[in-house]
Design a protein around this nucleic acid. Structure first.
Ligand SMILES: NC(=O)c1ccc[n+]([C@@H]2O[C@H](COP(=O)([O-])OP(=O)(O)OC[C@H]3O[C@@H](n4cnc5c(N)ncnc54)[C@H](O)[C@@H]3O)[C@@H](O)[C@H]2O)c1
Ligand SMILES: NC(=O)c1ccc[n+]([C@@H]2O[C@H](COP(=O)([O-])OP(=O)(O)OC[C@H]3O[C@@H](n4cnc5c(N)ncnc54)[C@H](O)[C@@H]3O)[C@@H](O)[C@H]2O)c1
Lengths: 214, 214
DNA sequence: CTAACATTGTTATTTTTGTAACAACCAAAC
DNA sequence: GTTTGGTTGTTACAAAAATAACAATGTTAG
């Protein structure tokens, strides 16, 4: 299908992931069809935006009946998921890393966390929520053996550039960096960074502004 | 100052927060001046974008000498921070909530987590990283007594709309929702939502696409 | 002294994202 | 049957964000 080959807008990809998650909930409640305005209201966006996103992936609903929930879930699956799923590792099995491991695993069948890495001897060779924690020295070896393609970085901030460098050498194709220090990767590696402090400061700025403080 | 009153672009606010964080690191290393291309390279963006952001906040550097690190930090402070700081609470003291509490507190002097809330009796009236956890029933009372203006939601997803509703009633002015279920708030409350699953699926999509998989 | 250069600040352009407008359609009501 | 109404898919428009272009300026090299 030509459409799934051309790159979708970033934001559309994000929304598709969210649509799917909520569509699964709808399906489990026995809902078989859904209107664009229903999807929109779940996500607090406009129906037009929903229809536009679905247009981009070439899905056509039925007039006055809406979209077939199951079909749509499957179509989004063919777009977002890789056939055999992708393997993920977490570098830095601290507070945040452990939270993520215990939270993610088992939820998305196509994305599995298969390894953790840490430098702290107390964590190495322990198992967290079913995930083995290896020493950071084994990074390349384990990544290549297991065929890991995505890494989540949750080490102390100052370590993240160093960690990212090793991940690239080891051959991962995508990195999700939760450290407030941004990292540098070659263009063929997809990088997503998110900084919780920044988010909080942003909320704080707009709260200040809206409240007309000082 | 007229400039700080007009609303800055969302993305600029985010970047200012990040600039400041790294400028503080520079300052602690004794660096007194910095060029736009240096700031840019720290954040993997272009020097033009840095200059544009600084233009928007009305800061002027010195030609061939760059920006005064200390001055710039202070100016960003006057823009992002509220004079007396803002108080923050965390609703849902589970894995993620506790991570956030222990991570955030003490880092940003102007934003302090002053309370946690949970429904689980085992957590109520315990103290986590110096933060008292109250029963959810006390939400409004504590928020008003302490003057909390910002809330972070880290309860199980299906609870988040209910929690958000109570937070609005209690009078918070900003909400940061880490739940994958989005919530509805009146326009005077600033809402920021972030969904880690979506981020991971987005990385996965682009990894798949870049690798030319299937 | 002058030319070349590095760097800033600003305006113009392009790209991305979101919103609005509207034609097409078909089911139901009358 | 014809009209009404709700809903889709698409095109046209607007807003936000990023990038490029470039003038201004003062420092350094010759
Ligand atoms: N905890 C949070 O809620 C939170 C929130 C926002 C951002 N973050 C960011 O996430 C990162 C981790 O935070 P945390 O609270 O989990 O810290 P943490 O100290 O609990 O965990 C960090 C872990 O990384 C390990 N580590 C250190 N160097 C390493 C290396 N080179 N290779 C592999 N592992 C290494 C440490 O042994 C430790 O286990 C930090 O950069 C922080 O800024 C955390
Ligand atoms: N843990 C993670 O790394 C992670 C990652 C991404 C998203 N999230 C999201 O964060 C949320 C929490 O995740 P978690 O792993 O911390 O879960 P958790 O089960 O460890 O924690 C949830 C906490 O919320 C409390 N709670 C339940 N209902 C409540 C209510 N009405 N009011 C106040 N407290 C209530 C529970 O008692 C529990 O302590 C979830 O929505 C999850 O989707 C978590």
């Amino acid at each position: 299908m030509a459409i799934s080959l051309r790159s979708l807008p970033d934001k559309t990809v994000e929304r598709l992931s969210q649509y799917r998650r909520n569509l699964l909930v709808c399906l489990s409640k026995g809902k078989q069809h859904i209107f664009s305005h229903e999807i929109a209201s779940i996500h607090n966006i406009t129906p037009v935006q929903v229809r536009r996103d679905l247009m981009l992936i070439g899905y056509t609903g039925t007039l006055r009946k809406g979209y077939d929930v199951k079909e749509l879930i499957e179509l989004i699956g063919t777009i977002l998921d890789s056939r055999d799923g992708l393997k993920v590792c977490v570098v830095g099995v601290g507070n945040l890393g452990r939270s993520l491991i215990s939270y993610f695993n088992g939820r998305r069948s196509k994305l599995t966390i298969v390894a953790g890495f840490d430098t702290n001897p107390e964590k190495v060779d322990k198992v967290y929520a079913g995930v083995h924690c290896y020493h950071f020295d084994k990074l390349t070896e384990v990544i290549q053996r297991e065929g890991v393609t995505i890494a989540i970085i949750t080490v102390p901030a100052e370590q993240s550039p160093h960690v990212a460098e090793h991940l690239v050498i080891a051959g991962v194709k995508g990195i999700l960096n939760y450290t407030p220090k941004s990292v540098n990767v070659p263009p063929q590696v997809y990088l997503e960074e998110y900084d919780m402090i920044t988010s909080l400061e942003k909320v704080s700025y707009f709260v200040k502004k809206n409240s007309g403080l000082e």
